[in-house]
């Protein structure tokens, strides 16, 4: 019995690889875009404009306060109503990028706020422009605080990407659903799906731990 199931599981490996590829592509693209956006939001939040700060803050709270599944459905079903044609992959990327940006924004903003005011004053006093102060003085020190939670957040976001299977994207989780219909052993199938996610996330978990240990050794800046 198990033997037959294993054999037909073996037969599903091209599908499994496709699912894994989809999960990696989706998370990879969204995390890169989300990181860029999240940094931009984080810098803007701390740039001194009250209006920007509260506008971004409100958006972040809204996204953090609603289920990701609901956000995906909103994007996937509402945007086409408004005339924006979307395939499931694009919708997934948008939803996951937005989610990533919101979490990363908070991590980056917290890191920036942790840099002592004396640092900004020294940079200010020597005539550095706002962007130079950010780039040369504040961000490198903020990264020291932000990098470990940032990598930790990546792990959470990769796992959250499983929710996109709900709009029909054939990611790792959906492959699990498809295979289970052929091989009626949910335990076995989803154990393998779990292993797939773990294989993607574990290197990041190790990296986060390593960064955290490195922080105490570095002179205020984390070298990768």
């Amino acid at each position: 019995m198990i033997w037959f199931q294993l054999q037909s599981l073996m037969g599903s490996y091209p599908l499994a690889l496709r699912g894994l590829g989809m999960t990696i592509a989706l998370s990879g693209i969204s995390l890169v875009l989300g990181t860029i956006l999240g940094f931009a939001f984080g810098v803007l939040r701390t740039s001194g404009s009250r209006l920007l700060d509260s506008a971004i803050g409100l958006w972040v709270d809204l996204i953090r306060g609603t289920p990701f599944l609901v956000q995906i459905f909103l994007i996937f079903f509402i945007l086409p109503e408004l005339g924006v044609e979307l395939d499931a992959f694009t919708a997934g990327i948008i939803a996951l990028t937005n989610l990533a940006a919101c979490f990363i924004c908070e991590i980056v903003a917290a890191g920036i706020r942790s840099v002592p005011t004396g640092q900004v004053e020294a940079a200010l006093a020597s005539g550095l422009s706002q962007w130079q102060r950010m780039r040369q003085v504040v961000l490198p020190q903020a990264m020291r605080v932000s990098l470990p939670p940032l990598v930790g957040q990546y792990v959470l976001l990769i796992k959250d990407s499983s929710v996109v299977s709900a709009i029909g994207l054939t990611d790792l989780t959906r492959v699990g659903w498809l295979v289970v219909q052929r091989v009626p052993n949910g335990l076995l199938v989803f154990a393998i799906v779990g292993i797939g996610y773990f294989a993607v996330c574990y290197p990041l978990i190790l990296l986060a731990r390593r960064l955290e240990r490195r922080m105490s050794a570095a002179h205020g800046e984390v070298q990768l």
Partner: peptide
């Protein structure tokens, strides 16, 4: 401007 707390860039 020289600060009481030096404020060198630690990195």
């Amino acid at each position: 401007f020289v600060f009481q707390a030096f404020n060198l860039y630690p990195h």
